[in-house]
């Protein structure tokens, strides 16, 4: 009889499809391994959308819960990352809509964002500037940038996740970068 620790080691060496099959059969520890493998990527995406660490953690957690509950809908031939990113992106969009309808709460989030330790521990000034410029970008432009430059996805994958045509993804990345440069230049001039 294997211990939980042994199970963990077994899962760590398994490929994704085996893990997903095991998870489908109710082996939640296999799902735990999948969460471990993808949590940084999903969190990065959520942070790109929401620009608030606490919110991003909540949504990342929720995305994995929902993904597991809907695992039977997942087509094993499809790339898992695209599927889980799509769920996370939809949850993030809902969260942003919620914020739009709750302006009072938004002030709180902004305050939280300002005290984000990520900013406090930023090692380089230019990273802080980029971070602030990213905050100033509309999410429609920010998110494709994050998916491209953090999650390292293709234009097609980004389009699938955000439900926009590939051409629009390219345009938004191009324009997003231009806007980012403009914001950074403005900031440099005023400094």
């Amino acid at each position: 009889m294997s211990t939980e620790e042994d199970d963990g080691i077994v899962y760590r060496t398994q490929d994704e499809v085996s893990l997903l099959r095991a998870a489908l059969e109710g082996e939640t520890a296999a799902w735990g391994e999948m969460v471990m493998r993808y949590k940084d990527a999903v969190f990065g995406l959520c942070l790109g959308f929401l620009r608030n660490r606490a919110d991003a953690e909540d949504i990342a957690q929720d995305a994995f819960v929902r993904a597991y509950l809907n695992l039977r809908r997942y087509n094993l031939e499809r790339k898992f990352s695209t599927w889980v990113f799509t769920i996370a992106a939809n949850l993030c969009r809902n969260r942003l809509r919620y914020r739009r309808n709750h302006p009072v709460m938004e002030v709180d989030y902004e305050f939280e964002g300002g005290a984000d330790p990520a900013r406090m521990v930023a090692r380089e000034e230019r990273e802080v500037r980029v971070r602030e410029a990213l905050d100033g970008l509309p999410y429609a432009y920010r998110t494709p940038l994050v998916l491209r430059f953090y999650n390292d996805l293709s234009y097609k994958e980004i389009g699938d996740i955000l439900a926009i045509p590939e051409g629009t993804v390219k345009t938004r990345i191009h324009r997003g970068k231009a806007m980012l440069k403009e914001l950074l230049d403005k900031e440099r001039e005023s400094a």
Partner: peptide
């Protein structure tokens, strides 16, 4: 710069 910043964001969490 973007890559590095985003990586740092995630790493700090």
């Amino acid at each position: 710069l973007l890559c590095e910043t985003l990586r740092q964001d995630v790493a700090s969490a």
